[in-house]
Every structure is written in structure tokens, then in C-alpha cells.
């Protein structure tokens, strides 16, 4: 070390300090990788169910074709999946605009003893894709065709 110029000594010192800092940060983040998640995914919820009546969040995709309104006319039921497991969810309340089948959702609530997740609140989760609305991209002629098709099927 004594043969190094002071400038280079400082450089080595700062680089070592930065490496130690990054290692500490990565270790902390790695240790937090489960705890710091905002929600459970269905696979986790099925494998290690949280204690009943404990407030948790469930996040995943609303399965296509699973959304239905129950007989009381207020409660909706749907299935949240992540490709590995699925959890049925019930919710009575106002849903966000982005809540549609095949889209992401985060449900806040608790897992009942019967395996049905009862949500108090729904948050929509947007994915990373940004696509313009198709209709706006169409020419006037195409728009008329679409309107004609919908009227035929009526």
C-alpha cells in the first residue's frame, strides 16, 4: 500500500467501502424478499395459508370467465390465479375501473376457513404493456365495419 499514491489509496478505500455497502444492501434485500412483498400470490397462499382472520393481501390475475355476480346482486365472486394455483375470492363493494377478467388485481381481506378469500377492498394492478385503444387507431371505414358487425350479431 505504501507504494501507492495517496490518490490511488483513496480510490481503493472508497471502492472497498462501496463493495461492502452494496453487499450489505443486497443481503438485506435478499433477507426481506418475502417479508417486503406487498401481497401473497395464490401459490404461497395455498402452500402456507396465513392464519384465518389475519388481514393479508392476495395478488394475481383474475381468471378469464371466472367473474360472476352472486344471487344477492351485490357480491361478486372470481378466481385469482398465478399459473400455479388459484384462490376463489368474494367481494361486495365498488371495483376499480381497471378491474377486468385477465387483468391483475390486489385484494385486501382475509382467508376464510373454507378456503375462500373474503376481500374488503380491491386494487387494480396494471401490467407493463401500454397499448392504444384499438378503435382510435382505426380509420373511419374500419369503424363503420365494426359497428355494422356488432349490429348484425344483435
Amino acid at each position: 500500500m505504501s507504494s501507492l499514491k495517496p490518490k490511488h489509496q483513496r480510490l481503493v478505500l472508497v471502492v472497498i467501502a462501496l463493495l461492502a455497502l452494496v453487499a450489505a444492501g443486497v443481503l438485506a434485500a435478499w433477507a426481506l424478499r418475502n417479508q417486503a412483498s406487498y401481497f401473497y400470490v395464490p401459490a404461497q397462499m395455498v402452500a402456507e395459508p396465513p392464519a384465518p382472520e389475519r388481514a393479508v393481501r392476495l395478488g394475481g390475475m383474475v381468471q378469464e370467465g371466472s367473474l360472476e355476480t352472486l344471487a344477492d346482486g351485490v357480491t361478486i365472486a372470481f378466481v385469482v390465479g398465478d399459473g400455479e394455483a388459484t384462490v376463489p375470492v368474494r367481494f361486495a363493494g365498488i371495483v376499480p375501473d381497471l378491474f377486468v377478467e385477465g387483468s391483475g388485481v390486489v385484494a385486501e381481506g382475509r382467508l376464510g376457513a373454507d378456503g375462500v378469500f373474503v376481500a374488503d377492498n380491491l386494487l387494480a394492478k396494471h401490467d407493463e404493456n401500454y397499448v392504444p385503444r384499438e378503435l382510435q387507431e382505426m380509420t373511419e371505414h374500419q369503424k363503420r365495419e365494426v359497428v355494422a358487425e356488432t349490429e348484425e350479431t344483435r
Binding site: S37, Y38, V106, E128
Partner: peptide
């Protein structure tokens, strides 16, 4: 790293999940 309500990045070295508009 964590399940988050915020969407993952739309742009990466590989490409873009964003329409050109």
C-alpha cells in the same frame, strides 16, 4: 424482487412493452 402493486419496467435492454405512440 418483491411482489408490488407497481408494474415492472416497460423498457429494458431487450425491448419495449410500450406501443410506439
Amino acid at each position: 424482487w418483491w411482489y408490488s402493486i407497481h408494474q415492472p419496467p416497460s423498457l429494458s435492454m431487450g425491448g419495449s412493452a410500450m406501443a410506439p405512440e
